[in-house]
Design a protein around this nucleic acid. Structure first.
Lengths: 195, 195, 195, 195
DNA sequence: ACCTCCGGGACCTCCCGTTGGT
DNA sequence: ACCAACGGGAGGTCCCGGAGGT
């Protein structure tokens, strides 16, 4: 039997610490200490901090409530809403103090660090694709207007969500999320279908 | 005539460097070097890096195109749009590579660094108040539906803008801004007024 | 009328700060801030920190309860005891947390800093001379044995006192002083005079 | 065979440098340079300068001639004297220019730096306990009066010794030690036993 | 006479990544 | 595979003293 590697614990700890403190805000030492593994052993598993960050991003999106399998018998729009609600619950679990890891890393180091950038792009794209698919199904079900471009609108919704999440982090408030729903999903749901 | 202080140059350089590299991404040395002043002079003018950041935020918002005096004879909604266009031009000047300083600092250190947090809160509030005022005037002018809550919707628009700006930074793209207008200002402008 | 100089305030503040934090433990900035005078003006009054320390030592000894004029009608030995009691009261006023400034500066920078060393030597010598004079009078009054050398014994008593004061600082205790009296002045007072 | 650590060399060098220059008088750089190890290595071994100081104190007392094993066939009082003589020889080796490390650190940073304070307390207590034990044996051997409280008198002797050592440092003189013996150990040895 | 501002350097701390031994 | 110890360099902070203007 192979000895259990400490690699997963490092990624796990890095996920938490990057989320709390940012990429530049926490050191390799911080992470390995939090993981309970000796610091020196970090470089057996990762070429460097940046590669770790890329992997952390992958882990983060793999756990996104937005990707979870669901079999609620909901309409497409209700399901879209439910997925955002689930996202919000994850933020609530941290008192909205951490923001979105994707957004945080993107704004902090996304411009440099190509490896991380690639991972972030995939995260955004996958997320937007899922949201667009739901919007498309909502159009097929005539829940929303056919005039909306699902791809563009999906990205817009996600941007708005990300902005709200980040502001919630800075202002320590939950309120923005209610506004988010009122101004996006609820709005398009109640808009006359012919628009 | 007192000797000219190097303080403004430090703030100016810090504005650029914080914007490009983030708070943790650039050092006091980076800033003072960019300002052309010796590093040791820094602490005559600021108790620490955090206080500098707070002042940089204040400078950044004081220069926001959103706050500029305007006397275009535009309707309220057109003026709101024009102000966002002006904001976008500022980002375009940097090839959308820097994002919004407010958002960047918020997502990087907003949770800690109380001084910066306060400055950021003021930035958000002032911005939201201006946007809400324009929305309110747009309602009075019957340009948009009376059913919208100007305060909540103003905050939502700003969140969406911030999200789009940050994604533009990560993805090196300008596209999101068009979506932003299509999905917010254009949408509400073309929606039936009675909604 | 000459403008009141800020020099005395600087010396006064330095006395307190050197006593609390040590010579290397507090900066010129610390002192001028405590004195409420602008930092830069320090060098109008003193060539440097060391000269300030020498003057602080002089001020400290000029205020020593050991030098105070007294006309209690006490015998020489009782007066010697009374003077040490008065010294102890000064330490008690600071909860025995500062130790003796003379000793502190001596052990911290006495070996270097010739100016300070000179001031400290004078402090010790003056103190020892006063104590020796009292011991001599005590011998003349047959309060203590003639076999004791007043000069050597005076220095010894002072050393013991200084050691006790410093230990009191480290251990936050007052007890040593009682032992001091029991083991020196009380002892020689109750010893058979013919020794 | 693990790679030889440079930790002991750091402690060793720190012992010398703290003793010569004081805690605030020498920097981590000074110490690591004296130890011949790169400065960056320091923080692999110690959390900070204060922890190093605490360990240095422990090393210093572990080497105290006062703790050395002895099997001279001396009476208790003679042995006590011999131990102080041995202590004095250690100071003489440095030309009495360094004083006692315990006392120096105590007077410089004893009030702050809790870790160091604890180490210093233990140093004092252990020393006093050894001295008191010898005094007690001297009483049993009827070498000194039974009326003396060994614990209090031991502390007093140590205070006097420390005071003398520190003054020797400031005044660059050896004389005080002779007075020390004349005024303490010799005095009690020649005092009538019934006192 | 006074003092704001400046200046270069040092201080403690810590960081990221490597090396060599188990 | 693992990891204690290392290594050079940079991080933010602060210090002592001087320069130059009021």
């Amino acid at each position: 039997v192979p000895r259990p590697s400490s690699r997963p614990q490092i990624v796990e700890a890095a996920l938490t610490e990057f989320h709390r403190l940012g990429f530049n805000g926490c050191s390799v030492d911080t992470i390995t200490k939090a993981a309970g593994v000796p610091k020196g052993s970090f470089y057996n598993h990762f070429p460097g901090k940046e590669e770790l960050a890329a992997e952390v991003v992958a882990l983060y999106i793999s756990r996104s409530p937005f990707r979870a399998e669901r079999d609620d018998d909901l309409g497409p729009l209700a399901e879209l809403r439910a997925r955002f609600v689930a996202l919000g619950e994850r933020h609530q679990a941290h008192d909205f103090a951490r923001g979105c890891l994707i957004m945080n890393l993107g704004s902090e180091i996304g411009s440099s660090a190509p490896l991380v950038r690639t991972a972030l792009d995939e995260a955004f794209d996958g997320w937007a694709a899922r949201a667009a698919a739901l919007l498309r199904r909502a159009q097929e079900a005539r829940e929303i207007s056919l005039r909306m471009d699902p791809d563009r609108y999906a990205r817009f919704i996600i941007d708005a969500w990300e902005g709200a999440v980040t502001r919630a982090k800075v202002e320590h408030s939950w309120a923005p999320f209610d506004d988010f729903f009122a101004c996006t999903l609820d709005a398009i749901a109640t808009a006359p279908a012919e628009i």
